[in-house]
């Protein structure tokens, strides 16, 4: 109950700041204090949001965007794991992938979107999401594999422990923390980059298309409403992800770490 009260207070505080910011902006610009179409008040945005909720296209676009981003994230994760595993096995492949990683890191998303726009219009946002998530998963899983205790590998070798048991008792417990860290960083990024790409190169039935249209029509109330939707979905997504990771990761976390977590909670 206390936690819910605290969260409500924090939300109300920031809504208050929002009101104040609109008020100051309107005064500064000499605009009406009761209605500002460029920087809308929270209640106008909430009304717009409820209006969006009543439309079927809102749900179709949101679900389509979610599915697209989820599929691309899964592809990027699988690709990242695969490349990390083979790169750790064959060093020359790691060298081979480096230029790709450097390119992804240094070239802005917008440039990729403009390049891909003409090549694979409908799949641009999916490809961008893969480009953003792949390097994070690859780098983390690769690091995890490289950090596997060589002494314990020798134990496996000396006792001829079968590969399946090695995976379960050595590889997974070492790599999983790196993998989870990669996923945690990727989720928010995948969402942001995917929607940004959709807005720049909007496929049918997408949140990006609505954001792009709202921008063209200078309908900032709708733009804010979509931004709020993105925040809400991202929060729900992160919450669900954390629960999922907690359940899946539990068996690889030593008991004393779990106990320490309990104490700190």
């Amino acid at each position: 109950m206390k936690k819910a009260l605290k969260i409500t207070f924090v939300i109300l505080f920031w809504i208050g700041i929002w009101y104040l910011a609109v008020l100051i902006y309107s005064l500064f610009k000499g605009m009406s204090l009761s209605y500002n179409p460029l920087f809308p008040y929270p209640h106008h945005v909430f009304l717009k949001l409820f209006e969006l909720f009543s439309k079927g296209s809102f749900y179709l676009s949101t679900i389509s965007s979610l599915i697209r981003i989820l599929i691309s994230t899964v592809i990027a994760v699988l690709l990242g794991i695969f490349c990390a595993v083979i790169s750790s096995r064959f060093n020359f492949l790691h060298l081979f992938i480096q230029p790709l990683l450097s390119t992804i890191k240094s070239v802005p998303v917008t440039v990729f979107v403009f390049i891909l726009y003409l090549l694979i219009f409908d799949f641009t946002s999916m490809f961008i999401t893969i480009l953003m998530v792949f390097p994070i998963v690859f780098a983390n899983v690769y690091e995890g594999i490289k950090n596997i205790d060589k002494d314990l590998l020798e134990v496996c070798q000396a006792y001829k422990i079968p590969f399946g048991k090695r995976i379960k008792s050595l590889y997974l417990p070492t790599i999983m923390p790196y993998f989870v860290s990669a996923l945690t960083s990727s989720i928010g990024l995948a969402w942001k980059a995917g929607i940004a790409a959709e807005a720049l190169c909007p496929p049918d039935n997408s949140m990006g298309l609505h954001i792009s249209l709202a921008k063209q029509n200078i309908d900032n109330e709708e733009l804010f409403a979509w931004a709020l939707t993105l925040i809400i979905i991202n929060l729900l997504f992160e919450f669900a992800f954390k629960k999922l990771v907690k359940a899946a990761f539990k068996k690889w976390v030593p008991n004393e770490v779990k106990n320490e977590n309990k104490k700190s909670n």
Partner: peptide, 14 residues
């Protein structure tokens, strides 16, 4: 061959 190494070398998660 059974090998007792100089260090215990135990799997920390088991």
């Amino acid at each position: 061959i059974s090998y007792v190494f100089q260090e215990p070398r135990l799997f920390p998660n088991l």
